[in-house]
Every structure is written in C-alpha cells, then in structure tokens.
Design a protein around this nucleic acid. Structure first.
Lengths: 217, 217
DNA sequence: TAGATTGTTAATCGATTAACAATC
DNA sequence: TAGATTGTTAATCGATTAACAATC
C-alpha cells in the first residue's frame, strides 16, 4: 500500500526550505540525528508545526531519536524537486539580471539559467558567466528552441508586460517577475512576483514597531 | 474624534504595495477615480478584500465613484512610510550587493543606502553609484557614526551571522537578509529573510502543478 | 429613483497551536 | 521502566469571503 503524505501548504513549503538549509549547515561531525524539537528551537518555530511540515516531505522520524539527518536532507531535496533541473532564461541583463545569472547556487535547487536577453546592442553578443546574451526580439524563438520553461523578468516595470508576452509566446510556463509590474498571463502560466518594495515595506513596518516597543536605543 | 482605522495584516500590507503600484501606473489622462471593484478585477483579487485593505490605509471612498486616485496614492504612500527615508548599509558588495546599491528606486519607498562594506581589499575604497565601499571590519563603527538603522546582508551564508553581529553592534535595528542563513538577533532587531531559494521553490511547484493540469503544451 | 459602489457584520476556510496517545 | 520524541486529533486563531445594509 502506497503511503499517502498530507499535502503541503505554501507557508509550510517555504519553511521546509529553511529546514533543509539548517540541517545541511549542521556540522558534519555532529550527531547523525536531528529532532523536530531541535529544529523548532533553532528557527524559533513551533515544534508541532515542524513535525507536521516534515510529515509532508519525508517518511517519518523515530520517537526518542528524531530524524536521520542524511535521509532527511535527501528526502527534502527530492520532495522539493532539487534533483531535477529546469532550464530558464533571464530577460533584462542589468545589475540584477547579471547578479541572478552569476548566482551559481541556483542549480543546487533545480534552476538552470541557460541564456540572457537584452535590448541594448552593446550587451547583445556578450556573455555573463559563460551564458550568451541575445537580442530581446529573439526571446520567443530561442525559448522554444532551447526548450526553456522558466523566464526571469528583470526589466523596468513599463517593459515587463511586453517581455512577459514574448516569453509566453516562446512556450515559457513559469515567470519569476522581479519587476513591480502586474503581469497578465494565460491560466497555464505560473507567475511568482518577487517584490523588493513589498518585502522592504514589511521590514520597515517591523522596524517601526521595534522602535515603539524597544525605543530608539 | 480621531478616526481609528483597522490594523493591517502582513499579507494585506503586501497587497497594498501592489495597489499603490497599480494605481500609480494608471494612465495620467484617465478618469480621476478608481473603484475597489476595478482594482480587484485587474489584480485578480476579491473585491471585499481590496476594500478592507484600503480601509486600513486611507480615509475612505465614495459609493458609486470609488476612490480619488490622487489622494489614494498620497494616503497609501504616507501609510507605508514612503515619505520617510531610513538610512541603510549594504554588507557584501558582490553582484547582488552591487545591484541593490545601484537600484535607484529604493528611495521611492523610504530606503536610502548610504554605504557598502566588503572584505575584499580590491573593492574597499572604490565606489558604487557614488556610495563608498569600506572594509567590513569597520561596519560597527561606521554604522553608528552614520546613524544607519537598516543593514542589507548580501554575503555568503557562512559569513552572514558574523556580519549580522557586527551590524547589531553598530546599532542597526533592522536586517534585510539576502543570504539563506538563519540569523540569531536580539529581540529589538527585526529580520526579514529574502530567500531566493524559497521563492523559486514555490514557483517550481506552481510550474509542476501547471504541467499536471494543462499538460506540457 | 435606480444602480453602482462603499463598508460592516456574519460565515467560512485554512493554518497554527494545544492536548494527548503511541512508540522507541 | 521512564523519558524523550513522534504523530494525530481537537481547539484556536486569523484571514478570506459571503451577505447585506448604507450611501451617493
């Protein structure tokens, strides 16, 4: 009988990524086991929450000893699909685009950037980290040819929707949008907005609250 | 009698940032009003949700006409504290750190990066976008001198906790952590983790689900 | 007036936490 | 055995959505 694990929620999914990093960063010469209690303590989370999250991604721990680190890491990585590379392209090779292309840890979680696109003729034909930069009007064609499935948008907000349309035309099925623009896509295309503005706004509010409760010094 | 607005939740706060961008991006020569119905439609959200969110940040709309765009933008910007600059420093002037220092839109939402720090002697003494790069061992001293309140961490994960400690020592009260490391800070310091890994993992799962329901083509 | 819209109160939904039983 | 831990079932909490009254 195939064991069925509970489905995972989005917040839980994000926590699991933290667990993975935490467990992987543990000293290699430490004990081979780790308990949910311990993880929860370290990441300032609720024990039961950690246990429930882990129940979604691995086959289970043992009372008294916890989870075996090695298999836990392997289970989580498998669950998250990190052992399965997906090809992606970056549109907009400005500072952020370049940084993302140069970030060599992406393959560790399944993202493989294969090319960049830009409208600036100065940039077209150059390389970033061994990846070629093509003219933006070739997006649709090349995405299809390269069989890329994910598009990262790092162009200014007013260009984002156009770029998005090109990516969709090229058969892209997931868009990681680093611009603040609100994108319109067909139902079959997934969009994840990475809003620095929203993120900072949350931090800013936490800061204000901290000043309220802890004073300015 | 001072009107008391309902408190805002974190998810609502992030949506409000989207509303602001959306309303600001509307054509300048369009109608002076915008309704919650319209915003909800455009951003694929629930009408009531938009209305409730707006109730937290502005003084209210008028039945039949909606909200006056000009005052809505002003109210939201004020509510979000965008009219109030906070000084910040960046530690780790790699590709991402440089991109953040160069991103000239931050001041539009209240973030003012005043300096950078790096351990690489090649970088120390140089400038990025007119902002000086200092040696990382001067973080604590200079943060205090500059009266910076926010620290952006863009160093590798294994250096993040050390850098974090230096920032806290320098009187920093909010940390925007771009490394995957799990930071330990005093209760008076706010931390916002910006996890590319977590974010991508969510997108990756959406993509997989899209393949399931819409097929590969 | 009629209709579109706001805003509020109640119902639903989902995620988190608490209590407890099972296990090594 | 006793105690630490897992994992499940029930209770709580918070956010979203639905229903409806108020207003221009």
């Amino acid at each position: 009988m195939a064991e069925t694990r509970p489905a995972i929620s989005k917040p839980a999914l994000e926590r699991v990524v933290r667990y993975l990093h935490y467990v992987k960063a543990l000293p290699a010469d430490g004990p081979p086991n780790i308990s949910a209690t311990f993880i929860a303590e370290a990441l300032a989370l609720n024990q039961v929450q950690v246990r429930k999250d882990l129940a979604c991604v691995c086959s289970g721990g043992r009372p008294k000893t916890g989870y075996l680190r090695r298999t836990l890491v392997r289970d989580i990585e498998h669950f998250l699909g990190y052992d399965n590379l997906t090809d992606a392209v970056v549109v907009g090779v400005g500072n952020l685009g370049k940084a993302l292309m140069a970030y060599n840890n992406f393959t560790a979680f399944g993202l493989n950037i294969v090319a960049g696109f830009d409208a600036d003729p100065e940039k077209v034909g150059s390389e970033v980290c061994g990846k070629k930069i093509f003219d933006v009007n070739r997006v649709a064609n090349l995405c299809r040819r390269l069989n890329a499935r994910i598009g990262l948008i790092t162009v200014p907000a007013d260009k984002a929707q156009d770029v998005c349309a090109l990516l969709v035309k090229g058969g892209i099925r997931a868009i990681w949008n680093f611009s603040p623009a609100n994108l319109t896509v067909p139902a079959s295309v997934a969009v994840k907005n990475e809003s620095l503005a929203a993120s900072f706004t949350v931090l800013s509010r936490m800061l204000a609250k901290s000043f309220e409760t802890h004073g300015f010094d």
